Simulated assay, not measured.
Amino acid sequence: MQIIDLQPDMEEAIAQTATLLIEGFRQHWKTAWTDLDSALTEVRESFGEDRISRIAVDQSGKVLGWIGGIEQYDGKVWELHPLVVDAAHQGQGIGRSLVTDLAERARERGGLTLWVGTDDEDDMTTLAGVNLYPNVLDHIARIQNLKGHPYEFYQKCGFVIMGVVPDANGLGKPDILMAKSLVRGGSRSRS
């Protein structure tokens, strides 16, 4: 496997990436990319100057995973958006490698922080389906993963929960906000 830039002229890889995006988000994020047009639009938007777009490919050029980064705060902060790995290749370190690669690319561009929003639209954590107000921080401190929510994957990649947007996706459907430093010690990937 190697990680390379996804380029605007790589039509076959773009098509594979869009299909991967639809399939990867179908199960838990039903409102994400539901058709090829919306997925292709998302992939093509990743080619902007303020973006990073990287794919993991096997020796034959098949796309195994995709990660995107969006510059914010004049390049000091980068949003990880999105990350998807082919279901048949999950659990093999591809996602972690893509996150590590994106962090390095963002750091090279002057990034200090990398953040990601991890929606909980399907009651996958104890933050979903409840009123988080007025003690939002108490709920975050007691979070539990009920159904394989990706926040634990991001924790293994060095991210910490920095907050939550209650009801971001409807009543009881929060967005869990996570971040990691790209330059300070203590937030490197853990094994």
Results as ranks from 00 to 15, higher is better:
residue 66 W to Y: 03
residue 108 E to T: 01
residue 153 F to M: 01
residue 95 G to K: 07
residue 125 T to W: 04
residue 41 T to Q: 10
residue 72 Q to G: 05
residue 131 N to Y: 02
residue 6 L to H: 00
residue 155 Q to P: 02
residue 151 Y to D: 04
residue 88 A to N: 09
residue 4 I to P: 01
residue 100 T to K: 13
residue 122 D to W: 10
residue 165 V to I: 12
residue 68 G to V: 05
residue 153 F to C: 01
residue 87 A to N: 14
residue 6 L to F: 03
residue 9 D to N: 07
residue 88 A to V: 01
residue 121 E to L: 06
residue 166 P to L: 12
residue 168 A to P: 05
residue 76 K to T: 04
residue 81 H to Q: 12
residue 93 G to E: 03
residue 20 L to V: 03
residue 147 K to S: 00
residue 78 W to R: 00
residue 59 Q to H: 03
residue 113 T to G: 03
residue 171 L to F: 14
residue 90 Q to C: 12
residue 137 L to P: 02
residue 94 I to T: 08
residue 150 P to S: 02
residue 182 L to Y: 06
residue 75 G to Y: 08
residue 142 R to Q: 09
residue 94 I to L: 11
residue 157 C to H: 12
residue 20 L to Y: 05
residue 72 Q to D: 10
residue 58 D to A: 09
residue 2 Q to W: 14
residue 58 D to K: 07
residue 28 H to K: 13
residue 111 G to I: 14
residue 16 Q to N: 05
residue 98 L to D: 13
residue 158 G to N: 12
residue 160 V to Y: 01
residue 189 S to E: 08
residue 114 L to E: 06
residue 30 K to W: 13
residue 56 A to I: 07
residue 52 I to Q: 06
residue 7 Q to N: 15
residue 180 K to Y: 13
residue 118 T to P: 03
residue 135 N to H: 12
residue 173 K to N: 15
residue 185 G to C: 14
residue 61 G to R: 10
residue 180 K to F: 14
residue 58 D to H: 06
residue 155 Q to A: 12
residue 1 M to K: 03
residue 11 E to D: 15
residue 169 N to D: 07
residue 68 G to F: 03
residue 94 I to N: 10
residue 172 G to Q: 10
residue 80 L to Y: 08
residue 103 A to P: 13
residue 94 I to K: 09
residue 22 I to D: 02
residue 118 T to Y: 08
residue 29 W to K: 01
residue 57 V to F: 01
residue 139 H to T: 02
residue 155 Q to E: 14
residue 102 L to E: 02
residue 15 A to I: 00
residue 98 L to P: 04
residue 46 S to M: 10
residue 143 I to K: 13
residue 178 M to V: 04
residue 164 V to G: 11
residue 40 L to F: 04
residue 47 F to P: 05
residue 133 Y to D: 15
residue 91 G to P: 00
residue 20 L to E: 05
residue 91 G to S: 08
residue 162 M to N: 12
residue 113 T to L: 12
residue 166 P to A: 14
residue 121 E to P: 07
residue 93 G to K: 05
residue 138 D to N: 15
residue 11 E to C: 11
residue 148 G to S: 05
residue 90 Q to Y: 08
residue 187 S to N: 11
residue 136 V to N: 12
residue 140 I to W: 04
residue 148 G to M: 01
